[in-house]
Design a protein around this nucleic acid. Structure first.
Length: 983
DNA sequence: TAGAAAACGTA
DNA sequence: GTACGTTTTCTAG
C-alpha cells in the first residue's frame, strides 16, 4: 500500500445494528427469513464499490475491508467486568442476519476481518494507523461516536445511511471538541449503552466546556478543586478514578495483533456470478439486476442453489456467545423474471430507472417573468404530463396563502423512446425580504404578479388533456380552488402508493422518495428553519426556495413514473381509480364547506366543566390527604397504591402504576370514594381541554366555520382519519359528552342530517364469511346481539337478560377485532378461562367464522397482505414475525382489516356518488362530515326529507354494482338543528 | 423544545 | 381483541 491509495474500513457490526433499526423490516419472500439489515448492507457495499469503479467521483477506495466484532469477551471485560454488562440479547429477527452479513461480505469477495478478544473498533483503529504510516488515506464507514477519536487529516468517517462525511469539523460541530479530545470527553460522559461509567452529572455539553477550559482530562482532574459549581466539583473529585477507568475503556487499541496485511485488502474486479448467486438466493431482485448490468453477467444464468445460504447454525455469526440455532433451511431459487414485456416487467423496469436516476439540484429553473413561465408551461403541455406543487404559508389549506408553485415535466424525444432530463422549475410569487416586522417584509422584485400567474396556471390545470401529478393533491386542489381554479385530470402519487402499499410504510413524499428513488429530499426545516427560528415560506430566500420546491415537483414526477405502472402490475387500477382518486374532490369539498360551531354553547360548557372539575379537585385532595397534581397518573398511582396501599394495583409497560378508568372503576366498586372522583374529574377536564376549549380556536375567521382535515392515506385499512380538529371523536357515549354535540349546529333555515350504517361491520362479516345464521338474521331484521346470545347460551331472544346480551355483543365485536381470550376477558372483566369457554362455544356454533379467520390468516401469511371485497389491500409485513406478540397482533389486525376496510370502501363509494345524486334530485344540501359509518349533511329545512331519501338510497346500495352484498345494508337517518339530536 | 408515555375521545 | 388523534405530564437534551 502506498501514498495514493485509499483504504475503506467498513464497520460491519456497527452497521448491522443501525440498519436493523433504521431500515424497514424486510423478509425473504419465500420463507420469511428476516433480511432487512443484510439488504441494506449489500446496497451500501454495492454503492461504495460503484464509486470505486466510477473514477469521476472524488474519493474512491483502492482497498476495502469489512470489520466485525468477534464476541463480547474482550480485554475490556477483563479491565472492567461491568463493561457492556447491560447489553440485552439482540432482537430475534437480527440473529440470523449476523451470519448472513458475513456471507454477503464473502460473496462480494471482500475481506471479512475479526479477531478474538477485540472489538471491531480496535481493528479499525489499528488498520487506520497502519495505513497512515504507509502514507495512505482511510475512510471509516461508520457513524459511531466511539470511532471519532480516530479522525485525523488522513482519516475521516462516512455515514453511509445519511450520506454524510464526518471529518474534524463535523466532530467539533457535534460534540464541541476536536477528535483528539473525544477520548477525554467520553471518559467524562461515559456511555450508557456500553456501561462505561464516566462522571455522574457530566454530559457532553458540560464535558466539552470543561475540556475547553482545562485543556485535557489529566489537567482537569488535577485542578478539579478550582471548579466553581459545587456539585460538579465534588463529582469530578469523587469520581476521578472512574473517569480514568473510563478512559481506558474508550481508548481504542491501535496495536491490535492483526493478522492480515493491508495489501490483501486491495480491491479486485467484481466476481459477478458469485455475488449474483448470493443476491438471488436472498431474493434481492433490484440489486441482482443492477449487479448483472454492471458486471455484464446474465442473471438468469446464475443458479442461486450454488450458494448455500442457511439460517441455521452455519449462518450464526460468532457475534453470539450462546443461543439456540434455528432450523437449518437452504435457500431456494425464486426468480419470476420472464423477460416478457408484461405489466409487471414494465413496473420493474420503471422502478429500476427511477432508483438509478440522479437528482441534479443545479438544473432547476426559477421563473421570474411571464416569458419564462409561458415557455415552461408550453413545453410541459407538449408532454401531456406535468407535476405540480404549491408552496404556501401554512399546512392548513383553508388558511394558507399561495407563495409560489413548482412544475416539472420530462421532454420526450419524438422519434425514439428516449427522453431528456426532467425539467423542473419554481415560480416565486410573493416572496418577501428581511424580517417579518415593521421594517422588513417588502416584496422581492422580479416576481410575476399573482393574478397573472394564476391565469396561466388556470388554463393548464383545468385542461383535461394535460395530466397533473401531485403528491397529496387534496391540499393543492384546495389551495387552487380557493383561487378559483378547479384542477381537472390528475393523479396523486400519495394515493397511488397507498393503493399499492398501505401498511408498508409512510406515504409522505420523503418516505416514498427514499423507498423508490433512493433519494432523500431536502427537508422543509432546512429551508424554513424549525421551532423558534421557523419562518413561513414567503420569507425563504428565493434561491433556496427554488431548489426545495423544484425538487418536490421533480421527485413527484419521478415517483409517478415509478409507481403508476405498479398499479396495473398489481391489479390495483380500479382500487385507485374508484376508491382513491375520486375522494380528492369529494373530501376537498367537504373540508371547504366546514361545519358551524356555536361559540356560546362551548364557552358556557367550558365554564360548567371548569367549575365541576375544580370542585372535584378539592374533594380529591381532601380524600387523598394532600395536594397533588390530579392530572398526573404517576403521582396518582403513587398515592393510591403507594401511600394508601390499595391492593390490586398493576404496572404499565414502563413500570408505572396503572390508573386507567377501568382500574379506577374496579376500586370504586370496592366502595372507595376517591377513584370515582378521579374518573369524573378526568372526564370533565378531558371534555374541557380537548373539546370545549380547543374547538373555538379552529373556527376559521373568514368562513366562521370549522374545517377539519381528512387524511386519505393514513390508515392501513382504508378508513379516513380526521385532524385539526379531529371531528371523528366528538363525544357521544355520556350525557355530559353529548352536550358538546349540541354545539355543532346547522345554519339558519337548514338542518343537520345524520345518516349512519347500522351494524355495517357485522354485516360485512356475514357477507365475507358467508354465515347462514347471520345472513338470515340480518335479512329478517333481528337484533343481532340477542340472536348471537340465544344461539350461544340457548336463551330465547324474547326476554333476553341484558347481561347475557351484553356478553354476546362483546363477543361479536371481539370477532371483528380478531378475538383473543385475553382481550375478551379484559373487556368483560371475567377470568380468561371463562372468556376462552365463550370463544369455544361461539366457534362451535359458528364454525364458518373460525374457518374464515383461519383462511384470512393463511392468506396474509402467504401474500403479506389481505384484501377487502373491493380488492383494496392492507399489508402486514410482520405477520410472520418470530415474536409471538408481534405475530398475534398482526394476525388480529389482518382478520380485522377486510371487515373494517370493506366497510370503509362502502362508505367511500357512497360519498363519491352522493354529491352528484343530490344534484340529480335538485337538492342543494351538501355533505359535511364523515365518521366512519356515518355521514352528516346540511340541508335546507324543506329539503330534509328528500335529502334523507337520497342519502339513504345511495348508502344502502353503495356496494353495487361491484359487489352484490349477501346481506342488506341498513341506514338510519334523522335531522335536527344540532348534531346531538340528529344522531 | 421535542418526544415518549399514559390516558381517553370516536367507530 | 381492530382503527385512529389530541391532550397532559414528564424526561432528556
Amino acid at each position: 500500500m502506498n501514498k495514493n491509495d485509499h483504504l475503506f474500513l467498513v464497520d460491519g457490526s456497527g452497521y448491522i445494528f443501525r440498519a436493523f433499526h433504521a431500515l424497514p423490516p424486510l423478509t425473504r419472500k419465500s420463507d420469511g427469513l428476516p433480511v432487512g439489515a443484510v439488504a441494506g448492507f449489500c446496497n451500501m457495499l454495492w454503492k461504495l464499490l460503484a464509486d470505486a469503479r466510477d473514477t469521476s467521483v472524488g474519493v474512491t477506495p483502492t482497498h476495502l475491508a469489512v470489520i466485525f466484532d468477534y464476541s463480547s469477551k474482550t480485554f475490556r471485560k477483563e479491565l472492567y467486568p461491568e463493561y457492556k454488562a447491560n447489553r440485552s440479547e439482540p432482537p430475534e429477527d437480527l440473529i440470523p442476519q449476523f451470519g448472513l452479513i458475513r456471507e454477503a461480505t464473502k460473496a462480494f469477495d471482500l475481506p471479512c476481518i475479526e479477531l478474538e478478544g477485540f472489538e471491531a473498533d480496535d481493528l479499525i483503529a489499528t488498520y487506520a494507523r497502519l495505513a497512515e504510516e504507509a502514507g495512505a488515506d482511510t475512510t471509516i464507514i461508520s457513524s459511531d461516536k466511539d470511532l471519532m477519536q480516530l479522525v485525523t487529516p488522513h482519516v475521516s468517517m462516512y455515514d453511509s445511511m445519511k450520506d454524510r462525511q464526518i471529518g474534524r469539523d463535523e466532530v467539533i460541530e457535534k460534540w464541541g471538541v476536536p477528535p483528539e479530545k473525544m477520548i477525554d470527553l467520553q471518559s467524562l460522559t461515559g456511555d450508557s449503552t456500553d456501561n462505561v461509567p464516566g462522571v455522574p452529572g457530566i454530559g457532553p455539553k458540560t464535558a466539552a466546556q470543561l475540556l475547553e477550559e482545562y485543556g485535557d482530562l489529566d489537567t482537569l482532574l488535577a485542578r478539579a478543586g478550582e471548579i466553581k459549581q459545587n456539585k460538579r466539583r465534588e463529582n469530578i473529585i469523587a469520581f476521578a478514578d472512574q473517569a480514568r477507568l473510563s478512559r481506558e475503556l474508550v481508548t481504542l487499541k491501535i496495536d491490535t495483533p492483526v493478522e492480515d496485511d493491508l495489501d490483501s485488502f486491495k480491491l479486485e474486479p467484481q466476481n459477478g456470478p458469485k455475488l449474483i448467486a448470493f443476491l438471488k438466493a436472498m431474493e434481492f431482485t433490484t440489486l441482482t439486476r443492477r449487479v448483472a448490468e454492471a458486471t455484464g453477467a446474465e442473471a438468469s444464468d446464475v443458479d442461486p442453489a450454488t450458494v448455500e445460504v442457511a439460517w441455521g447454525a452455519a449462518a450464526r455469526g460468532p457475534d453470539l456467545d450462546e443461543g439456540d440455532a434455528a432450523t437449518p433451511e437452504t435457500a431456494t431459487a425464486n426468480d419470476s423474471d420472464s423477460g416478457q414485456w408484461t405489466p409487471a416487467a414494465l413496473a420493474r423496469a420503471r422502478a429500476e430507472e427511477a432508483a438509478s436516476a440522479r437528482i441534479d439540484h443545479s438544473a432547476y429553473h426559477c421563473l421570474r417573468d411571464m416569458e419564462a413561465l409561458d415557455a415552461f408551461i408550453a413545453a410541459a403541455r407538449e408532454t401531456g404530463v406535468v407535476a405540480f406543487d404549491t408552496e404556501t404559508t401554512s399546512l392548513d389549506p383553508m388558511q394558507a396563502e399561495l407563495v409560489g408553485f413548482s412544475l416539472a415535466y420530462q421532454p420526450q424525444d419524438g422519434k425514439a423512446a428516449a427522453s431528456g432530463p426532467i425539467q423542473a422549475a419554481y415560480t416565486p410569487l410573493i416572496h418577501k425580504a428581511g424580517a417579518d416586522d415593521l421594517l422588513g417584509g417588502g416584496l422581492v422584485e422580479n416576481q410575476i404578479p399573482v393574478d397573472e400567474a394564476l391565469a396561466r396556471l388556470k388554463t393548464l390545470l383545468e385542461d383535461p388533456s394535460v395530466l397533473k401529478i401531485a403528491q397529496n393533491m387534496k391540499y393543492d386542489w384546495l389551495i387552487m380552488k380557493r383561487h378559483g381554479v378547479e384542477i381537472e385530470s390528475f393523479d396523486d402519487t400519495m394515493l397511488i402508493s397507498y393503493a399499492i402499499d398501505a401498511g408498508v410504510g409512510g406515504q409522505g413524499m420523503d418516505a416514498l422518495s427514499e423507498r423508490w428513488l433512493g433519494h432523500k429530499p431536502i427537508a422543509y426545516k432546512e429551508v424554513a428553519g424549525s421551532g423558534r427560528s421557523a419562518v413561513t415560506f414567503d420569507f425563504v430566500d428565493i434561491e433556496k426556495a427554488t431548489t426545495y420546491a423544484a425538487e418536490d415537483a421533480d421527485v413527484t414526477l419521478r415517483l409517478w413514473q415509478a409507481l403508476k405502472p405498479r398499479l396495473a402490475a398489481d391489479g390495483l387500477v380500479s382500487v385507485y381509480e374508484r376508491l382513491e382518486r375520486p375522494m380528492v374532490a369529494t373530501l376537498a369539498n367537504m373540508e371547504m364547506r366546514g361545519v358551524s360551531v356555536d361559540r356560546q354553547i362551548l364557552s358556557r360548557l367550558s365554564g360548567d366543566f371548569a367549575q365541576g372539575a375544580a370542585a372535584l379537585e378539592d374533594e380529591i385532595q381532601t380524600l387523598a390527604g394532600e395536594k397533588f397534581n390530579v392530572g398526573s397518573p404517576r403521582q396518582l398511582g403513587e398515592i393510591l397504591f403507594g401511600k394508601m396501599g390499595l391492593p390490586g394495583g398493576t404496572k404499565t409497560r414502563s413500570g408505572q402504576w396503572s390508573t386507567t378508568a377501568q382500574k379506577l372503576e374496579e376500586l370504586a366498586a370496592e366502595g372507595l370514594e376517591l377513584p370515582g372522583k378521579i374518573v369524573e374529574w378526568r372526564q370533565l377536564t378531558k371534555l374541557k381541554s380537548t373539546y370545549t376549549d380547543a374547538l373555538p380556536g379552529f373556527i376559521n375567521p373568514e368562513t366562521d366555520r370549522v374545517h377539519t382535515s381528512y387524511a386519505l392515506a393514513s390508515t392501513t385499512t382504508g378508513r379516513l382519519s380526521s385532524s385539526e380538529p379531529n371531528l371523528q371523536n366528538i363525544p357521544v357515549r355520556t350525557a355530559e359528552g353529548r352536550k358538546i354535540r349540541t354545539a355543532f349546529v346547522s345554519q339558519p333555515g337548514y338542518k343537520l342530517v345524520s345518516a349512519d350504517y347500522s351494524q355495517i361491520e357485522l354485516r360485512v362479516l356475514a357477507h365475507v364469511a358467508d354465515i347462514e345464521a347471520l345472513k338470515k338474521a340480518f335479512a329478517d331484521g333481528l337484533d343481532i346481539h340477542a340472536m348471537t346470545a340465544s344461539e350461544m347460551f340457548g336463551v330465547p331472544v324474547k326476554d333476553m337478560p341484558p347481561e347475557i346480551r351484553r356478553r354476546a355483543k362483546a363477543i361479536n365485536f371481539g370477532i371483528i377485532y380478531g378475538i383473543s381470550a385475553f382481550g375478551l376477558a379484559n373487556q368483560l372483566s371475567i377470568p380468561r378461562s371463562e372468556a376462552s369457554e365463550y370463544i369455544k362455544t361461539y366457534f362451535e356454533r359458528f364454525p364458518g367464522i373460525r374457518d374464515y379467520m383461519e383462511s384470512t390468516k393463511a392468506f396474509a401469511r402467504e401474500h403479506g397482505y389481505v384484501e377487502t371485497i373491493f380488492g383494496r389491500r392492507a399489508h402486514y409485513p410482520e405477520i410472520k414475525s418470530s415474536n409471538p406478540q408481534v405475530r398475534s397482533f398482526n394476525e388480529r389486525a389482518a382478520i380485522n382489516a377486510p371487515i373494517q376496510g370493506s366497510a370503509a370502501d362502502i362508505i367511500r363509494r357512497a360519498m363519491i356518488r352522493i354529491d352528484a345524486a343530490l344534484d340529480e334530485a335538485d337538492l342543494t344540501g351538501s355533505m359535511l362530515l364523515q365518521v366512519h359509518d356515518e355521514l352528516i349533511f346540511e340541508a335546507p329545512d324543506d329539503e330534509v326529507d328528500a335529502t334523507i331519501r337520497v342519502a339513504t338510497d345511495i348508502m344502502e346500495n353503495a356496494a353495487m354494482p361491484a359487489v352484490a352484498m349477501k346481506v342488506p345494508l341498513k341506514v338510519d337517518a334523522r335531522a335536527a338543528s344540532n348534531w346531538d339530536e340528529a344522531h
